[in-house]
Design a protein around this nucleic acid. Structure first.
Length: 435
DNA sequence: TCTGGGGTCCTAGGACCC
DNA sequence: TCTGGGGTCCTAGGACCC
């Protein structure tokens, strides 16, 4: 049974004919357009209106002018240049990306504290509690867009709707540099006309499966029985997509989500799977990860490594410890053991193309002064052992020196690390979630 | 022609305990 | 000795997102 649609309205809540409360459209999704490329065009006016790509060997971001040629993020620089010979590669002003991304989110925060930041250039917000101060959600969205444009010089698209899913889709539809408000009375007609790949959770694999049974639009997806959807995609994904297609989005806005894992990876090209390559690479990755964990006092109990072979197939191995780790050398040793096991399980693989370390089961807050995290003495896993104490002291000393003199001032140096630096550290840092 | 880096969530099987 | 179920944790893999 379906209730009569709520009367179209602006603010707060409206009452349907059946008497229950129906939410109004107060969720905003704001998304800076072609963010890194827009920043470059802002900083260097001669680049405006031209196809540009941030990056070099790999395209990290492309301007709309470049996208028109089929250039997209993640593409190799060579392919991009082939598609668009006049493409201009720019170096990347990474600290400006961080500064301007933060500033744009802060504009949203001037209206409501209920902001859920998704990434450097994207956030949800709920303005239900501030319409009496700033006007309708649509007016607030327009103000945000105007302020980001005038104060920061950047284009930002905003979607306004009753749910996160609809707001997110609306901002995608609004791009570039637009605003789309989804009237609560017209949600299904808006949603069902769109392509399935706009849905949250539909990636290449699901799209292909849906395509194979002739489903291209969200409306067609909605017509499928939940049973056939479940058969096609599995119980959880099937149920979720059915719910989203009928506009039942259970997700709440979560202003303060804590990270559940932290990791680092490094593509290697093609390297022999030997200790001379593996050990320094893992030490560098462990250094990156463990430093972040220590900085936020969030050591973790599960260590996972990923090894990608020459054919791009990758394998993971993990171990869960009794006590959490955030000591660089300890993490590196654990990772090396896991990689050794992985390689032993795949004796035919002599070439590796990527190594990754991730730490999960993070402690909420570990009082480092009271209880030392795990140090892996070679003979025993024993927090507080002399070996653990020594490694901990060394890490603390390195952290302090870096705080004063910068990351590059000191470290677990090695000459074998050129390959690890295929992407600048400053760029990697942009993608890191706050722990 | 070979494909970057940092994350989240889900599934499924097995170990182990009650 | 066999049968049975529920719950939790761990591991490995995969899809997806920005």
């Amino acid at each position: 049974m379906s209730a009569a649609p709520p009367k179209a309205s602006g603010i707060g809540q409206v009452r349907s004919e059946w008497g229950e409360m129906a939410d109004a459209a107060t969720i905003l999704h704001a998304d800076l357009d072609a963010f890194y490329a827009s920043v470059e065009q802002l900083l260097e006016p001669s680049l405006r209106g031209k196809p540009i790509a941030v990056g070099g060997g790999v395209v990290l971001a492309a301007s709309y002018e470049a996208k028109a040629f089929g250039v997209y993020g993640g593409m190799s620089g060579r392919d991009a240049r082939r598609l668009c010979p006049q493409l201009i590669f720019v170096g990347g002003h990474f600290s400006d990306y961080q500064r301007l991304g933060d500033a744009a989110i802060k504009v949203i925060g001037d209206f409501t504290p209920l902001v859920e930041r998704i990434s450097i250039d994207e956030a949800f917000a709920d303005v239900a509690g501030c319409t009496h101060l700033f006007g309708t959600p649509a007016e607030i969205a327009a103000t945000i867009r105007r302020r980001v444009r005038t104060e920061l010089g950047l284009p930002i698209s905003v979607g306004v709707a009753r749910t996160k899913h609809l707001a997110k889709i609306a901002s995608q539809v609004a791009k570039p540099d637009g605003l789309v408000v989804v009237d609560p009375a017209a949600e299904l007609s808006f949603l069902h006309a769109l392509q399935v790949e706009l849905m949250w959770g539909v990636g290449p694999v699901t799209r292909t499966r849906l395509d194979a049974i002739g489903v291209a639009t969200i409306g067609q997806l909605a017509e499928l029985s939940e049973r056939s959807l479940t058969r096609l995609l599995g119980p959880a994904a099937g149920e979720k997509l059915a719910a989203l297609a009928w506009n039942r989005d259970p997700r709440q806005l979560k202003p303060h989500r804590r990270a559940r894992s932290a990791g680092a990876q490094s593509a290697l090209g093609r390297k022999p799977a030997v200790v001379q390559i593996i050990r320094p690479t893992l030490l560098h990755l462990a250094d990156r990860v463990a430093t972040r964990l220590r900085a936020k006092a969030r050591p973790g109990r599960t260590v996972t490594v990923r090894v990608r072979f020459a054919d791009m197939k990758s394998v993971t191995r993990s171990i869960t410890l009794d006590a959490p780790v955030c000591t660089t050398v300890t993490l590196a040793r654990l990772a090396e053991n896991l990689v050794r096991v992985t390689l032993a399980d795949h004796p035919g693989e002599k070439i590796i193309s990527l190594l990754a370390i991730s730490v999960s089961h993070l402690e909420e807050h570990w009082d480092l002064a009271l209880e030392l995290p795990l140090g892996l003495a070679d003979e025993a896993l024993r927090p507080g052992s002399p070996t653990a104490m020594a490694r901990w002291a060394a890490d603390c000393a390195i952290d302090r020196i870096r705080d004063r003199f910068g990351w590059e001032a000191i470290g677990y140096g090695s000459a074998a690390l050129e390959a690890v630096r295929s992407v600048p550290d400053a760029f990697r840092r942009l993608a890191e979630k706050d722990l």
